[in-house]
Amino acid sequence: MNLSQIIFLVVGAVTIISAVLVVTLRNLVHSALWLIVTLFSVAVLFVLLEAGFMAVVQVVLYIGAIAILIIFAMMLTRRAMSDEASQTNGQWPASLLIAAAAFVSLAGLLNANAWPALPAADLSGTVRQLGLALVNLNAFVLPFEVASVLLIVALVGAIYVAGEKR
């Protein structure tokens, strides 16, 4: 076992434990803070895979935007910060069943196949390659444009919902 494997095991354990704490803690703000720990350790996992760009984007988007939005929404919601509410509703047996089924099938899938080890790639120009692939007609230009249209639609919708009704 070498150093990067030990780091991987530690970070993986932190990810799983903090993810469990996110859904089991009664205090919603604590859950949100543990969610930040989970997202941050996923970013560390990206670093271990030498995907620096993905790691930084993970921190910018998920911690810098989504986690802050979640905390902000909780602070603005009445009584959401009290510990009295029940953590489950009537649908918990069905969701337990679906979650267990998803876990079993994923674990089976991971065990059944012999996953090939990728050869070490040259990662020096990753960001440039990513940018070129996003505007290349033979690569990802269509998904990129579709995502842009989706974002514009979401922006216009947000302005319509928030704006004054005339």
Binding site: G52, F53, V59, G64, I68
Partner: peptide
């Protein structure tokens, strides 16, 4: 690192969280 500018943006998000 080759994503230095993005790193700076990412880290300043942590400052916002600390204030909250």
């Amino acid at each position: 690192i080759n994503v230095g500018v993005l790193y700076i943006v990412a880290i300043s998000g942590l400052g916002t969280i600390s204030i909250m």
